[in-house]
Nucleic acid binder design. Structure first.
Ligand code: FES
Ligand code: FES
Lengths: 141, 141
DNA sequence: TCTTTTTCCTATCGGTATAGTAGGATTATA
DNA sequence: TATAATCCTACTATACCGATAGGAAAAAGA
């Protein structure tokens, strides 16, 4: 339940690798080799991250990927949203009324509450929290 | 991301239907019809809930399903665990060392933190919270 | 201009899980 | 024995996912 796709796990490892490097930059093949990820598959992941503005990509010789912001500015909620989309436990988080006989659907609030809890967690962690030593910023224990 | 299976959504709706009925009991076909769920598919769901001890099932004539406990004793964490398994963002929540070069893996703590946040939310809500009017017990806002 | 290095794009494939269906076996009541 | 219900096993169809393949576009340097 609630398992995270390999795509997102790979993406986070790739970002963490970049964040640990001086200049926060590297070439795709290097990341793939260091993190033991299928190079071709990682390409698509990095492209997604670039499209979301989390990394800058430069083509051609001397090209590669570079973190768009400092690690403590890369919010994990944005990372997972870029790779696997927004947190959406059920389809009716925005559009009400799909599942049901209740006009003010009761379980809908339950799922929205879960979404909020997850978004809050992911919104309060950054890449910096991950590469340091743990993932526990003072907030929210 | 983090979408909930139809199985779990159906299961919760079925439990909510039972909780709203006097005696907390109904027959499978009745639930399926009222909640507009495929009857055959719902059978398997109710069997799982019965195996997890969340509902009692009685076979034969005058049989059916009944809530095993009062709605405020049915913890949502148990419900989703019965239907879709434990919350496990990554495989290495227990077994360390699958993904990585780090001995004290950094991203692992991140995922465990997420699991904890989700478990906390689900562990603090019961079926009663769902059938009332919202899903916001005083705790944890 | 030509070659090299890199990111980008599109299409495809095999595996796996999910939602749903089908048919019957079991159990209990009357 | 007939009926009404849960239980069990197997099957199908679809969709997504991880991965692969082959190249197209772009930037730099010789
Ligand atoms: S309208 Fe979506 S859960 Fe009810
Ligand atoms: S050991 Fe699993 S995330 Fe590193």
């Amino acid at each position: 339940m609630f398992s995270v796709s390999a795509r997102t796990q790979y993406g986070i490892r790739a970002l963490a690798y970049l964040a640990r490097k001086p200049g926060w930059e590297a070439v795709g093949a290097e990341i793939a080799e260091a993190e033991d990820i299928s190079p071709k598959y990682l390409e698509g992941i990095l492209t997604r991250l670039a499209a979301a503005g989390l990394v800058r990509s430069e083509r051609g010789k001397n090209g590669g990927y570079r973190l768009a912001r400092a690690p403590d500015g890369v919010v994990m909620a944005d990372v997972v949203a870029a790779l696997d989309g927004e947190v959406r436990p059920v389809d009716c988080v925005d559009s009400l009324g799909i599942c049901g006989h209740d006009t003010s659907c009761s379980s809908r609030k339950f799922w929205i509450g879960l979404k909020t809890a997850i978004d809050e967690y992911l919104g309060n962690r950054t890449l910096a929290d991950i590469i340091e030593n743990g993932a526990d910023p003072g907030s929210a224990n």
